[in-house]
């Protein structure tokens, strides 16, 4: 069983536990917690519900992964839920466009914790073949945190399954005590990007405003950004 490895000394998670100031030293590597982790992770990783959420061509391979030949259900990832409220895993399967990003972020925010994101295919990972397009976001990780990246265009269903196995391994390394969703405050809600003259990452709004002011004053700086309203 892989769970025995969860808190091996030297492994990253173990260090994190040691450095956690709120865990008294005598509780470190407590047998109870380790077992709890094992059970906790075993349960979680074997009953993931992915969100039925397709963006582009990769979504077809994702559906094929869920179909008879590759049968995602063998991993206990039984149901694809179209509603984010019932899903643990978002598979970003396809080209992320600027027009779609606000919706994706909103869906992500609506997913209950713990939530994971797999970026499937070249497009979701880094823009893919359409990277240079004016309406394409170069990778969903610009907006939401991604756990597993799978390159390929499209990845074979096996590649996606391999990514899932990797995700299970990742889940296995987590510990009840360090996961962010039991901390006060939980994880952050990501502000939904705005659609203006171009996509506006709200987190960077003030930076954009400032730079734009400078640029408007000195046209030389605006070189390469001079795309006025036509």
């Amino acid at each position: 069983m892989a769970d025995t490895e969860t808190t091996q000394p030297g492994d990253g998670t173990g260090d994190a536990i040691q450095n956690d100031p709120r865990v008294p030293p005598e509780l470190d590597r407590n047998v109870f917690i380790t077992t709890l982790d094992a059970v906790y992770n075993w349960g979680r990783k074997r009953s993931m519900w992915p969100m039925l959420f397709g963006l582009a061509c990769c979504a077809i391979e994702m559906i094929c992964t869920a179909a008879a030949r590759f049968d995602l259900a063998r991993f206990g990832w039984e149901l694809m839920r179209p509603s984010p409220r019932q899903a643990d895993l978002m598979i970003v399967s396809g080209t992320v466009t600027k027009k779609m990003v606000p919706q994706i972020v909103r869906l992500y925010n609506q997913m209950p914790e713990p939530r994971y994101v797999v970026s499937m295919g070249a497009c979701a990972t880094g823009g893919g073949p359409f990277k240079e397009g004016y309406n394409v976001v170069s990778g969903i990780d610009k907006f939401i945190p991604v756990d597993i990246y799978i390159p390929g265009c499209p990845p074979r269903p096996e590649s996606l399954l391999h990514g899932f196995i990797k995700l299970q391994e990742m889940i296995d390394r987590q510990s009840v005590r360090t996961v962010p969703w039991y901390r006060p405050g939980g994880s952050d809600v990501i502000p939904v990007p705005l659609l203006g003259p171009d996509i506006i990452d709200v987190r960077r709004a003030s930076e954009i405003a400032e730079r734009n002011k400078v640029m408007a004053e000195s046209p030389a700086l605006a070189e390469g950004n001079a795309q006025g309203q036509a």
Binding site: S119, T125, G126, G139, D141, V146, D147, I148, Y149, I150, P151, G152, P155, R156, E158, S159, H162, G163, K166, M170
Partner: peptide, 13 residues
């Protein structure tokens, strides 16, 4: 086809 990357795509991929 079994290539994945965790968290660090710009280097690993």
């Amino acid at each position: 086809y079994e290539i994945t990357s965790e968290h660090n795509r710009s280097q690993e991929l």
